[in-house]
């Protein structure tokens, strides 16, 4: 257990100044600034909407880009960077000859990537809320302060987080096993695009592809909200694609450990 905690600490120490870590903070920040600026300059277009609908539009602007493309790509990039640090430094042989259980090294790395993803999504939710209220300060005619969306927003991002566990685990395994840039990134991109297409086409078995899960999660959430009577924003946290995503995550994580444990380091 100590080895695991120390390994996590070390992951943070190693990456704190690299893009792997900073991207988890910078991406939400930059995206937030851009979208907020857009809404500020075009505030008149949403002025007439109810408070709830203003939030809905604002949040929708984020989720549109995020769910389909940015979130998968961010995950592909982060899992790659975290493992590439070791590949680049030829560090695996060194790490695995230290008196630390392979299990600790492996799981700490995995948990750290999961943490980065959680951090990123939590920041997204927080930044959206802060930006909403900021917009209201800048333009008091807006109604962002008349509705509290925070609960819904965090639940939504938690759903996205769970939906992305499958992609994260698969990409983690790819990046762990392959030292080069092209294989994990290339395969990741292709599968993401494939996922976007199948999810948009509404293919019946799209839910079997982990790369569609964030999109499907958003779709199922939207469907539920739109079916609700009197503009209720209720939706289920767990849905079919979330279960699949979690099962894929658990399986891939186990396979990864099995491979690491048995594989010789050449």
């Amino acid at each position: 257990m100590l080895g695991f905690l120390l390994s996590i600490q070390s992951e943070f120490y190693k990456t704190r100044k690299t893009l792997a870590f900073l991207s988890a903070i910078l991406l939400p920040l930059i995206l937030c600034i851009l979208i907020t600026a857009g809404f500020y300059t075009h505030a008149d277009k949403i002025m007439f909407l109810s408070a709830k609908m203003q939030w809905f539009r604002f949040t929708g602007a984020f989720l549109g880009v995020m769910g389909s493309l940015i979130l998968p790509i961010l995950i592909i990039f982060q899992t790659f960077s975290i493992n590439n640090i070791e590949h680049r430094a030829e560090m695996w042989k060194s790490l695995f000859s230290l008196p630390i259980h392979k299990w600790s090294i492996y799981s700490a790395k995995y948990v750290y990537v999961v943490f980065l993803n959680a951090l990123c999504l939590a920041l997204f939710a927080s930044f959206i809320i802060v930006s909403g209220y900021l917009l209201n300060v800048l333009n008091p005619e807006l109604k962002f302060n008349q509705f509290d969306i925070s609960g819904i927003l965090f639940k939504l991002h938690l759903k996205l987080f769970l939906a992305s566990m499958g992609i994260l685990s698969i990409q983690f395994l790819f990046s762990l096993l392959w030292a080069d840039f092209l294989k994990p990134m290339g395969i990741g991109f292709v599968l993401t695009i494939f996922g976007i297409i199948t999810a948009n086409l509404g293919w019946k078995y799209a839910f079997t592809i982990p790369y569609t899960h964030p999109m499907l999660a958003l779709q199922s959430m939207m469907k539920q909200v739109l079916n609700n009577k009197n503009e209720q924003m209720e939706f289920d946290l767990m849905s079919q694609e979330i279960y699949v995503s979690l099962i894929v995550a658990v399986l891939t994580f186990a396979i990864g450990y099995f491979v690491i444990n048995k594989r010789s380091i050449r």
Partner: peptide, 10 residues
């Protein structure tokens, strides 16, 4: 072992 394993960004 062989080349020393070092994080070059640190």
């Amino acid at each position: 072992i062989e080349q020393p394993a070092i994080y070059s960004h640190l």
